[in-house]
């Protein structure tokens, strides 16, 4: 759980001024990624957050080598990923956003077949156990449930024993129990030293898994930090809520204890429904996205 300084030698991934523009059908263009900078340390788990169309998937696909950047300096394990040599591909693992392939193969066949492509793969049985698919080795993939299929996707992503693992919205469509199991799996990979880059729409997932979070909007990084401090102190000012004869009250204050002392007359009077609420990661995230939309001048500002 270390967080090396950006740009340090220990970075697994560095991105400088990444740009990618798509041609739209009606002749226009869309800047999907618009000058993105990123530094992800070796062994770090990094979550990319952002609304639909913010550029998360484009960014992760460029890092995977599945998409070519228009411009920018992109290095994954020191190598530009587009059209990189097999020796580079052997060091990364990819969990695609959605996959319906290999339906007629059995679980162990699909893993065994992919393992052959790598110089030092993990044993198939070990990977099957790690993702909790024990007993499903000889099941046709098309008959797996959605959650099992997704765990197989992770298994296919880690079979090559990668140093960097990319996960694009890995738990979409999971039930709560399956998500928790999945988090355990990702945590154990992170503890094993794998650098993990994931995109997600679930703020609790990012909070649970990520050493650091980057928020992307309109193709730019608008905030970055640990789950505990992203957005800066000004977005984390607590709110005090209470009720009295005059009705409901809510005040935002950096010193909630002092406010409570005042409204309770030093503790002699008990306000009704008293609560000190700290903004959740979701509140902070929504504020970040909102202020970014309202004030375009802030675009690209670093916290």
């Amino acid at each position: 759980m270390r967080t090396p300084a950006p740009g340090s030698a220990a970075d697994a991934i560095t991105v400088r001024d990444l740009r990618k523009t798509y041609r739209l059908p009606k002749g226009g263009t869309l800047a999907a990624v618009d000058g993105l900078d990123l530094a992800i340390g070796a062994g770090e788990t990094y979550a990319l957050l952002g609304p639909n169309g913010a550029g998360k998937s484009t960014t992760i696909e460029i890092l995977e080598g599945h998409r070519r950047a228009d411009s920018g300096d992109i290095r994954v394990l020191g190598t530009p990923p587009w059209k990189a040599a097999p020796a580079f591909r052997a060091r990364i693992g990819i969990v695609l956003q959605e996959a319906t392939d290999s339906g007629e193969l059995r679980v162990s066949e699909a893993l065994g077949s992919l393992a052959r492509c790598f110089p030092a793969p993990r044993p198939v049985a070990e990977v099957i156990a790690a993702v909790g698919l024990d007993g499903k080795e000889s099941v046709r993939i098309s008959t797996l449930s959605g959650g099992q299929r997704r765990r197989l996707d992770v298994a296919l992503g880690i079979i090559g024993n990668p140093e960097v693992l990319f996960l694009d919205e890995p738990t979409t469509g999971f039930d709560p129990a399956a998500r928790r199991q999945f988090w355990e799996l990702i945590r154990s990979l992170g503890e094993g030293g794998t650098t993990i880059v994931l995109t997600t729409h679930y703020l609790d997932e990012a909070e649970q898994l990520a050493d650091r979070i980057g928020v992307i909007n309109q193709g730019r990084l608008i905030a970055e930090g640990t789950p505990a401090d992203i957005g800066g102190p000004e977005l984390r000012i607590p709110r005090v809520r209470w009720r009295d004869a005059a009705g409901h009250h809510e005040e935002t204050t950096a010193s909630p204890a002092a406010l409570i002392r005042d409204i309770s007359d030093g503790g002699r009077r008990e306000p009704l429904d008293l609560a000190v609420v700290r903004p959740s990661l979701e509140d902070i995230y929504l504020q970040l996205i909102d202020s970014n939309r309202q004030e375009p001048a802030l675009t690209g500002a670093r916290p």
Binding site: E64, G65, I92, T100, L114, L156
Partner: peptide, 17 residues
């Protein structure tokens, strides 16, 4: 089919030539 169901993408993401 393999272009659309992700097979080609998955394989192209591994060292498979």
């Amino acid at each position: 089919t393999e272009r659309f169901n992700g097979t080609v993408k998955r394989l192209a993401g591994t060292p498979l030539p």
